[in-house]
Nucleic acid binder design. Structure first.
Lengths: 123, 123
DNA sequence: TAACTAAGAAATTCTTAGCCC
DNA sequence: GGGCTAAGAATTTCTTAGTTA
């Protein structure tokens, strides 16, 4: 059967697998038939906007991810990261980190691990 | 004519108005007919995924906004941050960094500066 | 059990042409 | 110009039933 070269179906399957659900369970959750859901995963057909919304909501990911516009499942996470990066110290650290070699980075990671380890022990 | 109670059309019109374009110009930009574009704004029909992508890309907004999932036009992803964080080592480092205290971070920054200094001198 | 698909029915979309302001 | 829509053609989607593994 014909398959469009779409990322949409891949995403559906990937998100479903992540939850360990069968197509049956997924179709129930979305309120559609088993066959219909299968068509989506195999890129035989495309859903309407309402179902795209339901899918995004169910998996708690951005529609941009489902539609293959981005490879980041959710920008919410990214927003959190941005917040962390707004911390002055973190910014400082990142300025150095940016232009470090792989070797230097390895070294730095070791040091960081050591610092954490040391403090946990209360030295 | 029948109108679905959709936010999709509203968004299309709003984004077009923001640019001060006619439906004609918009339809040309998207590579579709004038009537077809009008149907979209009036919620008579819904586009396929490919066209949703084109619209989001043209207006530089998230598909989540166009589909009415969010009211925030764009979550303004920081492309630079994404790129940096995709590096495996950086990810590793960041996992530790996240849950470090201010004191620990200070210490880490000193260490990083030292590592860089040391290497510059060729020791 | 789980997933896929052929075939046809059902529904939606798209075009053309024309209308209104 | 700028936007809307009726009507029918064209296309797509959805269901049923059955197949495959």
């Amino acid at each position: 059967m014909e398959k469009k070269n779409e990322v949409f179906g891949k995403r559906l399957k990937e998100l479903r697998d992540r939850k360990g659900l069968s197509q049956e369970k997924m179709s129930e959750a979305l309120g559609i038939s088993r066959a219909r859901y299968s068509h989506y995963e195999n890129n035989h057909v495309e859903p309407d906007i309402e179902l795209i919304r339901k899918i995004a909501n169910y998996h708690k990911v951005d529609s941009d991810y489902i539609l293959g516009i981005t490879d980041i499942p959710s920008r919410e996470e990214n927003a959190e990261i941005e917040k962390i990066l707004n911390d002055p110290q973190t910014e400082l650290m990142f300025n150095d980190w940016k232009n470090m070699s792989e070797e230097e980075r390895k070294e730095a990671i070791e040091m960081i691990k050591y610092i954490k380890f040391k403090n946990k022990r209360g030295d």
